[in-house]
């Protein structure tokens, strides 16, 4: 009996489901609190995201006229599922990944993209003009950051010679921190992560002063809550991925907490330091600079490995 229950608990409670959502909300609090402190404010209380979520779940859900009802309700769930599924392949808190196989890096990255895709579809589904512009911008941004971000994560994977996140973790743990060996990759990964999570200055898809709340303008109640949780889970996964790949991996929970907190501080500072980029500026930045640098670094790594093998 115990043996058969184990994967279920794995999926629903401990690293997979409930626990991850709660950690995600805690991360959101940390994010808001850090930004508030950088802005010389006090910031929210620790239970703020929990209260927000519970409140949203208890609220009336309005379905606007003229939307595809099933899509409207299903998309938040799909987004959250994508994020949670991605978490299964990633070793967190010093534990091994729930599931792991050769090539799970690619699967996890694709699962993370489900979120943006769902947001884009959700925006296109509703008739409001703000949501449509928000959706266009979200998808445009996705096409621009996805490639550099992937390239930045490929660097360590090639260095480690494997596509398995768990194995990369052990590889980075044994060698020097890759932030020293591949600094450009690290920068691209962090900035790409911010783009992926639509954090400022890359928050053009939900720019409040231009298009209200972007693609999610028409969502209220449960849908909004699910999208929020999904985004927070993505934040946890993204930070963990960068820590695993560039900051020397995770061997135990303490290491995990310290390293993620350090990275979090950097991300929050970057968030509050810049003015929002226009969507065309974002795209230009990624394709002209990000992708090119990522490619150059990748070439250098491949060449280095090749050279090493010849020498050996």
């Amino acid at each position: 009996m115990n043996l058969s229950l184990h994967p279920l608990i794995l999926l629903l409670v401990f690293p997979g489901g409930l626990f991850l959502m709660n950690i995600g909300l805690l991360y959101e609090w940390a994010d808001r609190k850090l930004v508030a402190r950088f802005q010389s404010r006090v910031g929210p209380r620790w239970f703020q995201p929990f209260a927000d979520t519970v409140k949203l779940l208890a609220k009336e859900e309005i379905i606007p006229n003229g939307v595809h009802k099933f899509m409207f309700q299903a998309l938040p769930i799909i987004a959250l599922t994508g994020a949670l599924t991605a978490a299964l392949y990633i070793p967190m808190f010093g534990f091994e990944a729930a599931f792991s196989f050769e090539g799970d890096l690619i699967v996890a990255l694709y699962m993370l993209s489900m979120m943006t895709l769902s947001i884009g579809l959700a925006g296109a589904n509703t008739l409001s003009r703000f949501t449509i512009i928000g959706a266009t911008r979200a998808l445009t941004q996705m096409f621009s950051y996805e490639a550099p971000f992937l390239l930045a994560l490929l660097g360590p994977a090639i260095a480690a010679g494997t596509w398995n996140i768990g194995k990369i973790n052990t590889f980075t743990g044994e060698n020097i921190w890759l932030i020293l060996a591949q600094p450009i990759g690290f920068i691209i990964a962090v900035v790409g992560l911010m783009g992926k999570l639509e954090l400022p200055p890359f928050d053009a898809p939900e720019a409040e002063t231009e298009i209200v709340a972007g693609a999610l303008t028409e969502y209220s109640g449960r849908g909004l809550a699910l999208f929020h949780i999904g985004k927070n889970v993505e934040l946890v996964i993204g930070l963990t991925l960068v820590v695993i790949f560039y900051l020397g991996g995770i061997a135990n929970p303490i290491e995990f907490i310290l390293k993620s907190a350090g990275l979090f501080l950097v991300v929050s500072a970057l968030q509050s330091m810049f003015a929002r980029l226009r969507i065309d500026q974002t795209v230009g930045l990624w394709w002209r600079l990000g992708a090119l640098m990522g490619l150059l670094q990748l070439l250098a790594i491949i060449f280095g490995r090749y050279l090493g093998e010849i020498l050996r």
Binding site: R41, G43, P44, A213, T217, E218
Partner: peptide
């Protein structure tokens, strides 16, 4: 909303869309 008073510490957030507001 600004640092002197900062209502975010009471959980108040100014939202843009009426659909998100209480």
């Amino acid at each position: 909303l600004t640092p002197r008073y900062d209502v975010e510490r009471l959980g108040i957030k100014l939202q843009g869309s009426p659909r998100h507001a209480d």
